[in-house]
Design a protein around this nucleic acid. Structure first.
Length: 477
DNA sequence: CCTGGAGTTGTCCTA
DNA sequence: TTAGGACAACTCCAG
């Protein structure tokens, strides 16, 4: 009797899962195993919102597997120790997994693979998270890309990626005597009840991911080139957390687009390009593994960041900056574990440029609060905004939160949803209530610094301060 | 090696 | 009111 282990990590699905598919060929028993390592030295250890999602995603995966007469086996501890324990106890001959790409995970998995192989275990790893492997798509001269447009152009015109595999219709049984620790014992759910906003906003799991993709492709996708910019509407796919946890594969997204969308549809093309940005993020993190904490552009090592101002930082995190579009975004993040992409750029620009707070602080806050926190995408986004990354935002591109609000949330829907204290302020003033005379503002139910904070910085002065800081590193080689 | 075109997402000022 | 140019030059990339 032959037994295989499928070590599941961020591929929490049965659809298009090559490691699972391999285990289903020629094994009498298959053990779907998840190992939770609560003691980790990784500075990017799972954040609170990530842990919440993970709990529910594991639960959903267990349910899917149970429908196939299998189930998810959960263990806690060091991955190699746990894998070895299960291999030995159940005489497993093979271990399969899908690859991860963060520097620390690559290091860990390489060691585990070598160790298992030295014990005579067959180990096979697969690509399930990306359309193409980060090392498989390079410039003609063999070097990695640093600019998105040529990266994506070549991605689309180069060799095709693999087509997704359909999910299995049944599974081999679990071996006798194999037990899982209860999911609740992982302690992933918050001890205090702060997660009601997450529960309202999301249904983690593979089924939900598929449903969400269909809903998006049947609806907003065809207008995505415009609708993606309106945080007050549901114009985006909201697939990021599902993608992060591997509840849906980018290959499945690409194939659904091919099967259900009109070729050449502008909105769908722009959406696919966003999937491309995710690939680009992994490409960059793989080839420049230091960039999760160091600027890709080395000139920025000399950037004159002022000493950290904890009080200002806290106002930003709590959505009390006094700029409605910034505060709405930060509150959306805190409440739902997610923020609209347009608003992510606005709040990030505000933190790094208007407040001159180091981009890594922002990245860390996002890491702890986002349900889609992803090292590759988070790093790319923050470095881009700060101006030190790939295809970086030019130094002079400093978002004006008032203008951004007026441009992308003209009707004030987004502001009113997240800042109810401004609900009566007319559209004309809702993005800058502080410009109304106090008496008039009071008629709309707002007294500044009582109901809603005064703006914490002067936009013009802080903009100039940022430009001066950029000028300081401009000519440094 | 050289060349030329291009580079996610802006803002401000001026005419 | 609106449209166009300035904001800097540099690096990236393909041919």
């Amino acid at each position: 009797m032959k037994t295989a282990i499928v070590w599941l990590r961020r591929d929490l699905r049965i659809d298009d899962n090559p490691a699972l598919a391999s285990a289903l060929e020629g094994f009498d028993f298959v053990i779907p195993l998840y190992v939770h390592d609560p003691v980790s030295t990784d500075p990017w250890m799972d954040g609170s919102a990530t842990r919440w999602w993970l709990h529910h995603s594991l639960e959903a995966l267990d349910n899917s597997l149970k429908l196939l007469n299998s189930g998810l086996i959960i263990r806690m501890g060091d991955a190699l120790t746990q894998l070895t324990e299960v291999v030995d106890s159940f005489k497993a001959e093979a271990v399969f997994w899908n690859r991860l790409y963060t520097p620390r995970e690559i290091h860990r998995d390489t060691e585990i693979k070598a160790c298992l192989k030295s014990q005579g275990i067959r180990v096979e790893t697969y690509n399930s998270a990306l359309l193409k492997e980060p090392w498989a798509h390079l410039k003609a001269n063999g070097e990695p890309y640093r600019v998105f447009t040529p990266f994506w152009k070549a991605y689309l015109s180069g060799g095709a990626w693999q087509w997704p595999e359909d999910p299995p219709e049944d599974m081999p049984p679990l071996p006798e005597g194999l037990t899982s620790i209860p999911l609740a014992e992982l302690g992933l759910l918050p001890k205090i009840d702060w997660d009601h906003g997450l529960r309202e906003a999301w249904i983690p799991g593979e089924l939900s991911a598929k449903r969400q993709l269909r809903r998006f492709l049947d609806g907003p996708a065809s207008a995505y080139d415009d609708s993606r910019n309106s945080p007050g509407t549901f114009g985006t796919s909201r697939l990021s957390p599902h993608l992060h946890f591997g509840e849906i594969s980018p290959r499945r997204i690409a194939s659904q687009i091919q099967n259900h969308c009109t070729p050449g549809n502008r909105g769908v093309e722009v959406f696919m390009k966003e999937v491309g940005w995710r690939e680009f993020g992994y490409h960059l993190l793989f080839h420049f593994p230091h960039t999760d904490h160091c600027p890709l552009d080395a000139r920025f090592n000399a950037f004159p960041w002022p000493p950290h101002d904890a009080e200002k930082f806290e106002r930003w995190t709590r959505g009390l900056t006094g700029f409605p579009i910034v505060d709405a975004g930060m509150r959306e993040l805190w409440h739902t574990g997610w923020m609209h992409n347009r608003v992510r750029m606005i709040v990030a620009s505000f933190l790094t440029k208007n407040l001159l707070i180091h981009w890594t602080r922002g990245a860390e806050w996002f890491w702890d609060t986002l349900v889609d926190a992803d090292l590759a995408s988070n790093t790319l986004g923050w470095q881009w905004t700060a101006g030190c990354g790939a295809d970086a935002s030019p130094y002079f591109r400093i978002f004006n939160p008032i203008l951004q609000g007026e441009k992308f949330d003209a009707a004030g829907h987004y502001i009113r949803r997240w800042i109810p204290e401004l609900i009566q302020v007319p559209n004309q003033w809702i993005h800058h209530p502080f410009d109304l005379p106090a008496q008039e503002l009071k008629a709309y139910g707002v007294v500044l610094d009582q109901d809603y904070p005064k703006p914490m910085v002067d936009l013009k002065a802080s903009r100039e301060r940022a430009l001066a800081a950029f000028a300081a590193i401009k000519s440094v080689a």
